[in-house]
Simulated assay, not measured.
Amino acid sequence: MRWHPPGYGGERRGPERVKRDGWHEQGLLAVAVDDERLTWPERELVRQLGDKLYGKREEAADA
Rank of each mutant, 00 (worst) to 15 (best):
G55V: 03
H24W: 14
R13Q: 15
K19F: 14
T39P: 01
L28C: 15
W23Q: 11
L29C: 10
L29I: 09
P15V: 07
D34C: 02
R12N: 13
G27K: 02
A61C: 01
R37C: 01
M1P: 02
R37S: 06
E36T: 04
V46M: 05
R47F: 12
K19Q: 13
Y54I: 04
L29S: 03
A32C: 06
R13P: 09
P41G: 03
L45P: 00
A30T: 11
L29W: 11
R37V: 05
Y54P: 01
E58H: 04
E36V: 05
L49G: 08
G55A: 00
R2C: 03
W3S: 09
G14K: 11
W40H: 11
D62P: 00
D51E: 15
E59P: 00
G7R: 04
A61Y: 00
E25K: 13
R37G: 14
G50H: 06
L53R: 10
R20N: 02
R13Y: 09
G22N: 13
G55N: 03
R13K: 11
G55D: 01
L28N: 06
A30W: 14
K52G: 15
R57K: 07
V46N: 00
Q26T: 08
A60H: 09
R13H: 07
H24T: 10
D51I: 05
R12A: 14
V31C: 02
G14H: 06
G55R: 03
L38T: 01
H24L: 15
